[in-house]
Simulated assay, not measured.
Amino acid sequence: MFKSAFLGCGGRAMGHAQAYKYISRSKMVAICDLNEQRLKNFGDTFGIENRYTDIHEMLEKEKPDLLHIVTQPDLRLQLLTVAHEHNVPTVIVEKPIAITGSDYKAIMELGKKSKTKFVVNHQLRFHPKLLELLSDVKSGKIGQIKFIEVSARLNMSGQGTHITDLMFAFNDYSEPETVFGSASGTEGFKTTHPTADMSEAYITFKNGMHALLVCGKNAPSVGDYPDHYHKRIAVYGTHGFIHWWMEGWEKNLKEGSYEKGSKSYAEEDVLGQAGLTNAVFDWLEDESKLHPNRLDISLMEFSTILAIFQSVVSRKMVQFPYDPPDDILAQLQNALS
């Protein structure tokens, strides 16, 4: 039986923990948070007795096989380094993996030297309906893929990383080739997930695929829902398409069939979280079962977002390979101010 521990006991961590009712290979053994009331509430809710306010103490005493890091983005590098120094076998860290060029590059260097398996928490990738649609696409049921469109109504740092991950998943993780982006608005830089209010980009890939990514109020609406409920992906092929959004889906397959349905995002999300977590244990048990949200893949995806920022700043298309400046986010803010 594997042992799992949690760093951060806020609302998002609840989602990580609820998935354990679908996980049989690990037990939640310890939690850590600086806020003792959150620590108590979380521990009482999930029946976890071992509670800490010092991450070093928890990792030293409990020696978990998996550490869930569910904290704000500006702590990513610091806390991933702590996990590395304590030789934690695997880590699931919340998205986004980074904020700007400096932490992106530092985390990349950490990943190169660390034995810890780092996985970024893009649980949408494991939603049951998305897995079904992904299987349809990969088995050729819409013909040859020609174009991918993804969007979300929160900003690029808030939800753009989720839809970027879906874009890469449906494109078989082909490397990006060019990015041409635009952005506007500076209110988002005042938040815990700092970036422009609205962003969009046209992206080409080495396999010949093209894609459009849109984030912010300029993104398509899928109904009368809060802003965070508008994540979606559409994939167009030579003989059909698939379209997924948070409460529904549709597909038109090459044999001429058309289907459309509704679903519960909340129900699918806990199953998606369980799927992502179980895939971590698969990787722990078998080195050949690489996790699709492992660090190198997630950093490639995030470099695409940084390239959007660069395109806005330089007012031209960005060609890959791309080495972002340490302060590219600050440059973006200055360009939009």
Rank of each mutant, 00 (worst) to 15 (best):
M1V: 11
F2A: 09
F6Q: 03
A13F: 06
M14Q: 15
G15W: 13
V29A: 00
V29C: 07
C32E: 06
C32P: 01
R38E: 09
N41V: 13
T45V: 13
G47P: 03
E49T: 12
E49A: 15
N50R: 12
T53F: 02
D54M: 07
I55E: 05
I55V: 13
H56W: 08
M58K: 09
E60V: 03
K63E: 14
L67N: 04
V70N: 04
T71Y: 03
T71E: 10
T71V: 15
A83Q: 09
H86Q: 15
H86T: 09
N87Y: 15
T90W: 05
V91N: 00
G101C: 10
G101Y: 01
K105P: 04
I107N: 01
E109G: 11
K117D: 01
V120T: 13
V120R: 05
H127L: 14
L130A: 04
E132T: 11
V137S: 07
G140E: 07
G140R: 05
Q144N: 11
F147H: 14
E149G: 03
S151H: 11
M156E: 04
T161K: 04
T161D: 04
H162Q: 09
T164Q: 08
D165I: 08
L166D: 01
M167S: 05
F168W: 08
F170A: 03
N171D: 11
D172S: 10
D172I: 07
T178D: 01
V179W: 01
G181P: 03
S184M: 11
E187C: 07
T191V: 07
T192G: 08
T195H: 09
M198V: 06
M198I: 06
S199C: 13
T204Q: 06
F205V: 11
K217P: 00
A219H: 11
P226E: 15
I233Y: 00
A234Y: 02
A234H: 05
A234F: 04
Y236I: 14
G237I: 00
F241Y: 14
M246W: 02
E247P: 01
E247F: 02
W249T: 02
E250N: 05
E250Y: 02
L253N: 02
G256P: 00
G261A: 05
S262Y: 05
Y265M: 11
E267R: 07
V270T: 14
V270P: 02
L271P: 00
G272V: 04
F281S: 02
L290S: 08
H291Y: 09
H291P: 01
P292V: 05
D296L: 13
S303C: 15
S303E: 14
I308F: 10
V312C: 05
V313N: 01
P321H: 07
P325N: 11
D327G: 03
D327V: 12
I328W: 04
L329D: 01
N334P: 03
N334E: 09
S337V: 02
